[in-house]
Design a protein around this nucleic acid. Sequence first.
DNA 1: GCAATGAGCGTC
DNA 2: ACGCTCATTGCT
Length: 678
Amino acid sequence: MPVSAPTHPRPRRALGLPTPAAERPVAQVCVDVPLSHLDRPFDYLVPAELAADAVPGCRVRVRFAGRQVGGLLLARAATSEHAGRLDFLGRVVSPEPVLSTEIAALARAVADRYAGTMPDVLRLAVPPRHARVEAEPAGQPVPPPPRPATDGWLRYPRGAAFLDAVAAARPAHAVWQALPGEDWPARLAEAAATAAAAGRGALLVLPDYRDVERVHAACAALLGDGVVALTADLGPARRYRRWLAVRRGIARVVVGTRAAAFAPVADPGLLVIWDDGDDLHADPRAPYPHVREVLVQRAHATGAALLCAGFARTAEAQLLVGSGWAHEIVAPRRVVREAAPRVSAIGDDERELARDPAARSARLPLLAVDAARAALAAGTPVLVQVPRGGYVPALACGRCRAPARCRRCAGPLALPAGEPGAGRGGGVGAGGARAPSCRWCGAPEACFGCPVCGARRLRAAVVGSARTAEELGRAFPGVPVRTSGGAADAAVLRTVPARRALVVCTPGAEPVADGGYGAALLLDGWASLARPELRASEETYRRWLAAAALVQPAAAGGRVVVVADSTLAPVQALIRWDPAGHAATELAARAELGFPPSVRMAAVDGTPGAVAELLAAARLPPTAELLGPVPAASGERMLVRVPRGDGRALAAALAAAQAVRTARKAPDPARVHLDATP
DNA sequence: GCAATGAGCGTC
DNA sequence: ACGCTCATTGCT
């Protein structure tokens, strides 16, 4: 017969309390709890036996409101301000000082800027521990390399001056627009090696893994083992091993994706963000920090140089230039013209379909077919940029499932993007369904009639880039067709050889061609420009530039055909290859509308009650304007707008209001997202 | 009137 | 998931 075990009362605290450490017995700990009103250091006593291990920056466990919670030891102090009794540290998880004072201050500053909490930021900044990796012997610091040759920067008048500033450890700030065809990974590697040669660290943050690979290879050529790649897709062990090598000062140069913006590079001399318009640089988890803002903050705090680089220029980067905080590094017009391909636009009314039946079946404008044929005849590959699959669902006949075609150009019909998506609530109103329109020429289709069976109903059909590839293949018999990106499982190509081929890709998945493409056809313009988001124009232009920059210069025959109305601003900017001009126009337009970055804007999301309660608790700056509510995925959304100068006050007010709600144990959360674009 | 029990709350 | 406070209950 089973006998229930006697329940042992938990052994009381071992007889007698531990003695506090003799030196600096107080540990200031950032405890890992998600509540806003507890987002401050808490003091604990360091037991004498942990005195040596409890170093600033180490991981600890402490008792907090009864529970055991993790925390990071921020500092040791002689005394505490706390009036009550202090508990003792539970244990030191490891004496490895994973949080430097620089990154602790950065996490605090980023949390404050975004009305978030420090533990939330630290979860992004400090990777999970891997005990076995931590126990491995540390390597040897890699000695500084010689200062590299930087001839590649001579095409940019201010380029050499910037690198000199990096070499001399001056806090220069620059916004760089790379020339079309530029070997930008090599240029960034030279900049990083310049910082390393000066005995300082460098940090380069890129949108995705593919870019990290390229830049890492370029850096390794100059720095050998002194550079590590930090990406999220490494397993926990490899990720922690490389991160520790950085923290321990073994590797001085880091190339990585967005979380690497917090990499604890020792004595950073140069911080770089490439292609800051790519939304992969925006972290999707609270408090939603953006790499550019993290690096700007870090440059401020450390005196590191900052380089915001890309083919395109964002409105935010334009503001850095316009405010005088950053210099621009751009090539003279003459050099730009020499490097750029010839760009032509085919608008709605000027298009003329190819005559011969094969090309006609691909439903391509004559101009595009001609450009592609010429490039293929010259033995060069042709890049075809098509809309991301699923991003704009194509349409088919509701009865016979034949693809729905544009009556004007026979391109695929699609619904404008957006809705009923999560998060991007954006444009309400407009009432009812939007009319479908052609994905290639943009013509709206008011009343569809199926040419095959006569039905008038439409249904969604998934047409990926594979389908486009097939259609294009028929128009160019005998030409190999390759695809890159598109469906989730579609492979993304890194490079293609310098041979005749059609390379169909979705935006962001453009392979680099050896020697450059002979031509690029940009077919995604209508789908992309028609999106309701504020950034649609900037985003479309950024994608076009990314593709067009891979094409040979006009003098070598390089051509770009963009299917969009030539009067549109981004089309004009592409033809003139003028990213700075486009950014200035874009920034002016945002100022006119009262949108970021001309103002600071915060979005507050949640149930109507939660949103109202948060805003009621917030002591907003008197300049604050409330906009909304608009429906959002999780209830509704309000926008709060203030002049740029009141941005800090806005964030502080919203953080304080969050603290009021978490202290009150309000049941429904309200999410605060600074710099959200409406 | 007072001890025993339970729910709620702060959190070092 | 602890230990404190304060309210409620139950008994003298």
